[in-house]
């Protein structure tokens, strides 16, 4: 079965809430999908009026020529694979439960906020409040893997509980605030106030200033980390850290910081 391809017929004039994608598994047939009612502006229209639709695999979706007016792509999805070409709007992959999201473009704020599982690969940059708390809740991402090729805005990765976040670019201010646990890899430079009130978690960083409040550990071999990273690279299809280039630091227990930092040497 060929993947389902959605391509906009015209340039969008109004913001478009794309959270209807999460309903696709419930639809019984392709005709039902094409006739699905969606809200665009003040109008209720059928999906086929806005998009050219081809292909038939409703679990494997490709969105071509996306627009930054498309919000909530991948919100609440379960067992869907969505590939998006072009820039997208707010809340990309927010509240995602399971599935695969791939984006060849940039996103706006609230990307992957409230993530519960699944993989998100972004080959571009993202806005503020990335991997953060959803608006009306105090819980950060609970699981899942997120990879970002580009840069990340301010106030990202707040109250993260589980999961893996990999950022190849730079990160804005106030990142990893109140982190509870999970793994974060940042290869770029990090802004102000990083990791305030962090509790636990494993951080791989290149920015040396982050190790300032940490204690250097002795020079033991980290066999498990090697294995862990290898598995991770397999998932994202790319080797981003050299295995034998890590120096381990651990947090200061006096301030209840039980996280650990691996400094990546050049």
């Amino acid at each position: 079965m060929r993947p389902l391809v959605l391509q906009l017929k015209h340039k969008l004039s109004y913001r478009l809430d794309m959270s209807f994608l999460s309903d696709f598994n419930k639809l019984k047939s392709l005709t039902k999908l094409k006739d699905k009612k969606i809200i665009y502006g003040s109008q209720e229209i059928m999906l086929k009026e806005l998009f050219n639709i081809s292909g038939s695999n409703m679990k494997n979706i490709i969105i071509k020529k996306a627009s930054s007016l498309m919000d909530n792509i991948g919100k609440n999805i379960e067992d869907l694979s969505i590939k998006v070409y072009g820039n997208v709007g707010y809340a990309f992959g927010a509240h995602m439960i399971n599935g695969e999201l791939t984006l060849y473009g940039n996103t706006l704020d609230y990307t992957a906020s409230g993530l519960k599982g699944g993989n998100i690969m972004i080959f571009g940059s993202v806005g503020k409040y990335f991997c953060g708390k959803p608006n009306a809740s105090n819980e950060g991402i609970k699981d899942g893997l997120v990879y970002v090729k580009g840069n990340v805005g301010d106030n990202s990765i707040q109250r993260m509980r589980r999961g893996v976040v990999i950022i190849e670019g730079n990160v804005g201010d106030y990142a990893c605030d109140e982190m509870i646990s999970g793994t974060v890899i940042i290869k770029g430079i990090v802004g102000k106030c990083f990791g305030k009130n962090i509790k636990r978690g494993t951080l791989f960083v290149k920015d040396k200033k982050l190790t300032k409040n940490y204690v250097k550990s002795n020079n033991a071999k980290y066999n498990f980390i090697d294995f862990y990273l290898k598995t991770l690279f397999k998932i994202i299809g790319k080797k981003i850290i050299k295995n034998n280039s890590l120096i381990r630091f651990y947090g200061n227990k006096d301030v209840n910081n039980m996280s650990e930092v691996f400094l990546i040497k050049n």
Partner: peptide, 21 residues
């Protein structure tokens, strides 16, 4: 069309008006 929807990002008047959406 039948339900109240709420989205803090989509219905932000400043952005909508500035970008003529």
């Amino acid at each position: 069309h039948g339900s109240f929807v709420h989205d803090r990002n989509i219905y932000n008047n400043e952005i909508i008006i500035d970008k003529k959406n």
